[in-house]
Nucleic acid binder design. Structure first.
Length: 110
DNA sequence: AGTGTGACACTGG
DNA sequence: TCCAGTGCCACAC
């Protein structure tokens, strides 16, 4: 794939799809991996348009604190949490427990 | 072409 | 240590 043909959004989706089952990452980590460290907000914005991309596990992307800030954009009030819990990730009060353990760093893993 | 916007991240008080 | 303000930059309008 010619990287130039891929929009920033598409790159975000590509990375998101690589997040292993039962692991999570942060918006900033993805942005940094894409070489746009200052565009973490855009990653979240990109995920907003991933609702029609069923391959993108948007629920595995949280902010750098492991907080489910994007929860509001999912159906219902706790769909995101349920999806994570179904993968073995413990979430309490929108906060991922043992975040450092389940955190997946694309910079290190890829 | 310019302006507004946001599912973040960092810094200073 | 904690919170509020500020920077940021790619996309939509």
């Amino acid at each position: 794939m010619n990287p130039k043909t891929l929009n920033f959004f598409e790159k975000v989706y590509e990375v998101a799809k690589l997040i292993p089952y039962g692991r999570v990452t942060s918006y900033g980590a993805i942005a940094t991996y894409l070489g746009a460290a200052r565009s973490a907000r855009m990653v979240g914005y990109a995920m907003n348009g991933s609702y029609n991309m069923d391959n993108v596990p948007a629920h595995r992307v949280v902010n750098r604190n492991g907080l489910l800030t994007g929860k509001q954009h999912f159906e219902g009030t706790n769909l995101m949490q349920q999806l994570l819990e179904s993968e073995g990730i413990i979430v309490i009060n929108n906060q991922i427990q043992d975040f450092e353990i389940v955190f997946w760093n694309p910079l290190k893993e890829l």
